[in-house]
Amino acid sequence: MRPDHFDSWLTVDRRGLYCRPGGFYVDPHGAVERAVISHGHSDHARPGHQHVLATKETLAVMRARLGSPAQRGTQALAYGKGLKIGDVAVTLIPAGHVLGSAQVLIEWKGVRAVVSGDYKRSADPTCPGFEITPCNLFITEATFALPVFQHGNAQDEVTKLLKSVAQFPDRAHAVGVYGLGKCQRLIALLRAAGYDHPIYLHGALQECCDLYESFGVTLGTLKPATGPKRDELTGQIVLAPPSAIADRWSRRLPDPITAFASGWMRVRARARQQGIELPLVISDHADWRELTETIAETGAEEVWVTHGREDALLHHIQSTGKRGRALALIGREDEDQ
């Protein structure tokens, strides 16, 4: 193992990315002895590990979703506090993706590697913002790594939604959102735009909202969408998991307009394919500019790309004179969560 040969001490096997001198994996796909978890989405936070290290928010998410975050023990680490694991120092740094999301800084013998997890640079009232961490090796996500992805201002998309609600007062607006992060961010954006009606939720979204509120994120009046009479939902905004908005669940809603809040909605074919009538480009991932600027700002001499459209990002990285490498981790979903 040589610190300046990154792949001698940070290796990839079928369970994921492994730090040899620290003896732990970051966001492993399979069950392992020790795991550092960047955030609570299910393709990063898997069940079955013996020991888990994460922010207390992420541990709470894992407890809510998996029952128990680890078989033997959990350890909460606050943002910015270093922890020694053997000769390795681990620090969690806000990633701005969802509540509790962190970049993982790993320092060994004077060399710094940062695993970004999923991240975004644009503002999100429901979680602390991304912080740039200078490093030698930056391991980045690449979900939206094509230059056509420029997410724009999320508040403008909320304005579009509210305009449609005013224009079609006799219909419900069923907005597809992922349960952890997107749901709460959209609610917070609606509140910031002055929307103070109750917001109706599919049953699967309630738990994460309660969790956010328990960590001090206020979301206003939320009501279950199952239960009230159809008429009560006329003219209202109803949030539901993407799979529910165009399927049988939505039949309970009065003549719904189907919307979807996702970075993928920037591409027309994606929206049309899913039968979306009102696409809202709101993403919790970095867009092309954020990815490329972040890579430059970290000052890293080498960049590894974990999952997404790595071809384009690697091409860009190489054109800036840095070394780049695709990790091809298994088990990462092509989703904007």
């Binding site: 094509l146 230059p147 056509v148 591409v267 027309r268 074919a269 459209r309 071809d311 384009a312 091409h315 860009h316």
Partner: peptide
Amino acid sequence: VLFGLSRDYVG
């Protein structure tokens, strides 16, 4: 190259 990859994706 980036344009080509994008064009393929967007269609």
